[in-house]
Design a binder for these strands. Sequence first.
DNA 1: ATGAAAGCGCTAACAA
DNA 2: TTGTTAGCGCTTTCAT
Lengths: 338, 338
Amino acid sequence: MSITRGRAVTISDVARAAGVSRAAVSKVIRNAYGVSPGMRERVEAAIGDLGYRPSIAARALRGSSYRLVLEIPYVSVFMTQIVEGARRAIAGTPYQLVLAPAEGIEYGTIDSLADGIVDGIIAVAPLVDPAWLEELAGRVPVVMLGRHDRTERYDTVVGDDHHGTRLLMEHLFTLGHRRIAHVTEPETVTRPGSGTPHANRLEIYRACMAEAGLTDLVQVARRRETSRDEAREATDRLLALPEPPTAIVAGHDDIALEVLARITGAGRHGRIAVTGYDNTHVAAHPLIDLTSVDQQGVEMGAQAATMLLERIAGRAEARHWMATTTLHARGSTTGVTV
Amino acid sequence: MSITRGRAVTISDVARAAGVSRAAVSKVIRNAYGVSPGMRERVEAAIGDLGYRPSIAARALRGSSYRLVLEIPYVSVFMTQIVEGARRAIAGTPYQLVLAPAEGIEYGTIDSLADGIVDGIIAVAPLVDPAWLEELAGRVPVVMLGRHDRTERYDTVVGDDHHGTRLLMEHLFTLGHRRIAHVTEPETVTRPGSGTPHANRLEIYRACMAEAGLTDLVQVARRRETSRDEAREATDRLLALPEPPTAIVAGHDDIALEVLARITGAGRHGRIAVTGYDNTHVAAHPLIDLTSVDQQGVEMGAQAATMLLERIAGRAEARHWMATTTLHARGSTTGVTV
DNA sequence: ATGAAAGCGCTAACAA
DNA sequence: TTGTTAGCGCTTTCAT
């Protein structure tokens, strides 16, 4: 029933065509030491003639697959920055990058990635258990994105949520805001003490409010799940308050976009300040004009990939890299009078 | 130098622990015929105890890897629709989806994906040679996205560029526009006769203008490469014309966003009509409010994945699926008076 | 119903 | 410098 699939050319076919051993071919394709120019030439000719391509599966079984995987919980604009950075860092190496969108909780996805087809893993998985990750890192090199835990077994690349959030809060205080609310991710990823980026931003938000003597005015709205509709829902709850906020700090740009949408829908665009996080390109769009914090997404991706390559090359000591954050003030705050 | 990586549990370890043969374990994990309940139970217990996970590489060497790959030339908002659809279609099957961002021209990327770690390929690759694709499809099941060529060897999933573009043009004509320009992708992917979606949209644009007797007013601005800056460049060229267009048809929403940005930058927001394509979620944002054509991106991804699974299951006849298109008229056109 | 054994395509010792 | 050989972990006949 199944249609005939052409037989793949194997290393043996090449060896036969070139009149050499398979080991010789293997050495040629790996640029290993100990091949005469003459042999290299014949082998390469045979490879060209036959259109030979080494089987990744067979390679992975014995050594490396030259695959790096970037696991992401969802495809978002910020993630495209990460991907772009990783791609750049890998360019010119023999490695290839693949992305694995995780389904819900990441254990299964990551585990199955580690099952033999990748030489290293970069993952965004704020909720997985550190102990589990250590075990994983014992099987395959791992770099974690957005985790603030520090361990010897895997590297981390994080943003400076502390500084970034403070930049935003101080900006809003300077503009005269006091009734500042926060719209963020679901409870699962913002649980106090969990150390996720969004939990941190939430904590800093609370801390800043407290330091300004505004604890009473703290208002946090979490969306119930990671969907745009739920972000709008959460915004609506804030807008429906007896005393609505004069400024809303969103967990990141994607959420901020929905906040802006609801504010606009309520006919109050330009009357409530809004901030995002990540400084994605839409934030800079003149029709959106969203104040945001840049945390070097592209550079984060590049660092993660570079660190992973170092791990694969043999580095055993952990490295932890933190991105710097900069405020990009735009009309969504500067154009709003309290 | 390299740190010690824990030895992975193999099928032999499980067999030993359960006191059975490796073949028996293999049968259990594949749900193959011929295992007694008693043996199944013991084997599954051993698997649980040891935390055994089959090696994908070894599997791929003999049979299937249960990996499907979606190759994409760039990570865009529209692509996230495709990914979402594919993910849904695959959910519940033993297959896992990975994405492979191609670097420039797609041959190398696709080829290397086919080298053994995937059971099937979904690819967005408008420029690769059909003959090459046929050869590829002879090695591994393939579904192509956005290709209008019809072949027996691989399946295709495309949008109805013809109908979609006509919807937009008629909409603009109805609103009274005559001086309508088109901003689109670089020459490489819009070459007349190449059959790519953007080449098609360009041709239909020309045809519609001709049918309306407006051939003289045709204005096409291609961005020189796939970057946002270049899209703004292209827009600027149109705005600088002695008689600028009253409406601009963008190749897709991402380009339209940049068109809107430049129009806004030039202080002419609301005075030039703009249309996009793909109906990405930003188009519906009230601050963007972009007229666009929906071509069922999620459904396209789901169809592609479903068709790929069918191919893997043995279907040998080609299937070609075309999405329907619907116009979503919004303020970027309806709010503009000619 | 179960197990023995032969590979899948490649890499890496080790011999020659 | 080159070739021989022994597996890597799994699936798949083919005996039992």
